[in-house]
């Protein structure tokens, strides 16, 4: 066949549009890079400067002389307990509230007002939550500044995130699945348990990840409600794993880092960056575990 002129050649206008599209692509790419570079720099600096401090000894020894020597065991395990406690409080409350708001609550002005309130609370600075925790738990309820009060304060702070992400995950499950269930005579709860929850669990876990990262990383709320820069803790035997009581003060990584970075004179650089690195790795580990779990659960979901 004779070679024809191309009837589908791009027109001049199309070529111009393609150029614009390419420019936009570069703009987006540049934005992406602008976002990634500072992050890589921060991580890079922390890793390079903190790496020399890392050792088994550093992880398992308690800080001495305000953290200038020794390790970070006390704060590390404090953060662990703090995060777990916070999750124990916020996950049930947040998930159940999210389920209620999405599945049961009538779509009226009150529900919408609650949702707006919840969303706005998520944007409130953490120091405000800290003051709330201090006022509600310590001043009004006369509790000690303690591990439990700090965890509860963090739970209050992260509750909006938990509720919002649960609600969004549930809302993403197509409505016709629910209708099919109801049509077959399933109750609301059966529908939620067998169809809605299994299909939204990965979204709910995203909420959990966000909560964990915030709970482990925030300083202000725990500083006012129970965390201390340094204290004596049991350093021998099994007691080393349970150094804190629920109703007493405790150490935590974010607080520890905050104090050794600012308050202790003559603090070796590597100690500061070592702590930062451990905090980073801790959050990274928890997040990757949750991501792995999410991937696993998502693979089972098919629609």
């Amino acid at each position: 066949m004779r070679e024809m002129s191309n009837p589908f050649a791009p027109t001049a206008y199309e070529r111009r549009k393609a150029r614009t599209a390419r420019v936009m692509e570069y703009v987006f790419l540049a934005m992406g890079i602008a976002l990634i570079i500072p992050m890589l720099l921060i991580i890079g600096v922390i890793v390079v400067k903190g790496w020399p401090a890392l050792s088994w000894e550093y992880l398992t020894a308690n800080p001495m002389r305000g953290g200038a020597v020794g390790g970070i065991w006390g704060p590390l395990i404090g953060t662990f307990y703090l995060t777990v406690l916070c999750l124990l409080i916020v996950a049930p409350v947040g998930i159940l509230a999210g389920i209620y708001l999405n599945e049961y609550a009538p779509d009226n002005r009150l529900t919408r007002a609650i949702m707006i309130a919840v969303t706005s609370l998520a944007g409130v600075p953490s120091i405000v939550h800290a003051l709330f925790g201090l006022g509600a738990f310590v001043a009004a309820m006369h509790l000690n500044k303690s591990l439990l009060v700090a965890a509860a304060t963090l739970a209050v702070m992260t509750l909006p995130v938990m509720i919002t992400s649960t609600r969004e995950a549930l809302a993403a499950v197509p409505r016709n699945f629910r209708e099919a269930c109801w049509n077959l005579g399933a109750t609301r709860w059966q529908t939620i348990r067998t169809i809605v929850l299994p299909n939204s669990i990965s979204g709910i876990l995203t909420g959990v990840i966000l909560v964990v990262a915030r709970a482990a990383g925030e300083t202000a709320p725990i500083m006012l409600t129970g965390a201390v820069a340094s204290m004596w803790v049991e350093d021998e035997g099994w007691a080393k794993f349970t150094p804190y009581r629920l109703d007493e003060q405790f150490m935590a990584m974010a607080m520890h880092l905050n104090s050794i970075a600012r308050d202790v004179p003559g603090m070796p650089e590597s100690m500061k960056f070592g702590s930062a690195l451990v905090l980073l790795l801790l959050i990274l580990t928890i997040n990757s575990a949750a991501v792995a779990l999410r991937l696993y659960l998502r693979r089972r979901k098919r629609w």
Binding site: N6, P7, F8, T11, E14
Partner: peptide, 20 residues
């Protein structure tokens, strides 16, 4: 082949193709 041109060719713009 549509309008005498193999639409799978490199130099076919899909935008133009889909317009027609």
């Amino acid at each position: 082949t549509i309008l005498g041109k193999n639409i799978l060719d490199e130099d076919v713009s899909v935008a133009s193709l889909r317009k027609r």
